[in-house]
Write a protein that binds this DNA or RNA. Structure first.
Length: 445
RNA sequence: GGAGGGGUGGCAGAGCGGCUGAAUGCGGCGGUCUCGAAAACCGUUAAGCCGGCCAACCCGGCUUCCGGGGUUCAAAUCCCCGCCCCUCCGCCA
């Protein structure tokens, strides 16, 4: 959520920033709605002040035993209350209009983000490793996996529907090995491990920005409960209340761990990591990546989340990205890092690095991690603050960051393609062998 | 699923319907003392919003004691509904 005060004070800056990320969010509609809101509020508060004053006077009279003198004042307050009731509903409406607009505004890009229209204008920052030179035609993982008997796409469809994956034998073991390898690596680097719920309520998904704007991306069928009955986010957002959603990423739950809390500056930065399954409707991606396990409805991910002060969040983003890259380097998978341009960034991010791994089967780099600094955007939605008495009075919003470290299914696919041999077998990279019971090679069985 | 108890400030924990935005303790901040620190003592310390042209300080107002509704001139305090938490029982991976 953007700072309403910033929009009011410097609308042109906001207008320019939003235009650079190709948002159609209407700054002027907000300013108009906000002005209206303040007008109504001023009127309402004047009446409330009058009522409070009169009521107090009645209290004095009652105390002095002059109850008879109070009846005129009582009548006056009754009249004021009728007007207040009318203004209150007007105030609720104007406030709701402002909240609704605010809830749908994307974050502003950081000054260091390159300006661009779409993914073609993202900027490559580095490359690591050299794509292998094959002396045979490398296969895609959707051919390798089934041939090895470790991925079964057909039966996954039978169990659920298309875009689901069924792993078997060494494939299932490899998935589990990767999860443990990634968790151990990040934990060794100082990330605290968590095991969160895979379903989350409305307020949680509002906090990280998935709701109210992106509900169609989330799974919610057959998972309703009463958990949001007392939803405090206002009518518009709470139309979705009463539902639990399958999390699209652990970012959602890890970030909301501290929703509504005031942290102590001495705790920061907090570095968290968790493995969870992730669920995405993939609405609107019909026809894209229909083969293989690149774009599926359920996948595993090891996710990093940080809470940092505004002063350190830029640094923390660099370190988090390096931490994700560490996994690729330990697995010796060639990759590149790109910085997303303004037009390609996600809703909540001020800056995002994507890591793309080399996929010989597609002869291309494919996204395998996305690391973002969300600034105070999510912290404002989720009310996550910190206190630093030596530096300032009261509390301030923290900065939140998140990054995949890594998407597990895509890593598995990348391993198959990069480590495939002419005979169709796949070598296990050394870093992973301890997690595979010493297995050095997957062969057809 | 059944029975009971509870949700108050950063935390713990009081709170006869008006003098309670809220006692007290802890924590934080400032000070006294000290070479310095600890201890002790003194003071101070909730948030959000609106306004005072802008910003800091400050001043005024409104709202906020889980959420929503009701009673009343007046609600943290009374009534109703909901949510959440705790304890006991039942069932269960």
């Amino acid at each position: 959520m953007l700072d309403a005060k910033l929009i009011r004070d410097d609308p042109q800056r906001v207008r320019d920033a939003l235009r650079s990320r190709h948002s159609s969010w209407d700054v002027d509609a907000f300013l108009t709605a906000d002005l209206k809101r303040r007008e109504v509020l001023a009127e309402l508060e004047a009446l409330q002040a009058r009522r409070n004053e009169t009521s107090k006077a009645i209290g004095e009279l009652m105390k002095q035993g002059q109850a008879d003198k109070a009846s005129a004042s009582k009548e006056e307050v009754r009249a004021i209350n009728e007007q207040i009731a009318i203004l209150e509903s007007a105030q609720r409406a104007t406030q709701a209009a402002v909240d609704e607009l605010l809830a749908t505004a994307p974050n502003l890009p950081d000054a260091t983000v390159p300006v661009g229209a779409d993914e073609t204008e993202n900027v490559e920052l580095k490359r690591w490793g050299t794509p292998r030179d094959f002396d045979f035609e490398p296969q895609a993982h959707w051919d390798l996996g089934p041939a090895l008997g470790i991925i079964d796409f057909e039966r996954a469809v039978k169990l659920a529907e298309s875009r689901f994956v069924l792993l078997a034998g060494a494939g299932a073991r490899l998935e589990r090995a990767l999860i443990n390898f990634m968790l151990d690596t990040h934990a060794d680097a100082g990330f605290k491990e968590w095991w969160p719920p895979a379903l989350a309520n409305t307020e949680t998904l509002f906090g990280t920005g998935q709701l109210p704007k992106f509900e169609e991306d989330l799974y919610k069928t057959a998972t309703t409960s009463d958990a949001n009955e007392g939803c405090s986010l206002g009518d518009k957002v709470c139309q979705t209340a009463g539902k639990l959603y399958l999390i699209p990423t652990a970012e959602v739950v890890l970030t909301n761990i501290h929703r509504g809390e005031v942290l102590d500056a001495s705790q920061l930065p907090l570095r968290y990591v968790a493995y969870t399954p992730c669920f995405r409707e993939e609405a609107g991606s019909a026809g894209r990546d229909t083969r293989g396990m690149i774009r599926v409805h359920q996948f595993d991910k090891v996710e990093m989340v940080k809470f940092a002060t505004p002063e350190t969040s830029a640094d923390e983003l660099e370190h988090m990205t390096l931490e994700a890259e560490k996994i690729l380097e330990l697995l010796e998978l060639p990759y590149r890092r790109i910085v997303l341009c303004t037009g390609d960034m996600g809703f909540s991010a001020t800056k995002t690095y994507d890591l793309e791994v080399w996929m010989p089967g597609s002869n291309d780099y494919r996204e395998i991690s996305s690391c973002s600094d969300c600034g105070d955007f999510q912290a404002r939605r989720a009310q996550i603050k910190y206190r630093d008495p030596a530096q300032f009075k009261g509390s301030r919003l923290v900065h939140t960051l998140n990054g995949s470290g890594l998407a597990v299914g895509r890593t598995l696919a990348a391993l198959l393609e990069n480590y495939q041999q002419a005979d169709g077998s796949v070598i296990i990279p050394e870093a992973l062998r301890p997690y595979m019971g010493g297995l050095e090679r997957i062969t057809a069985s």
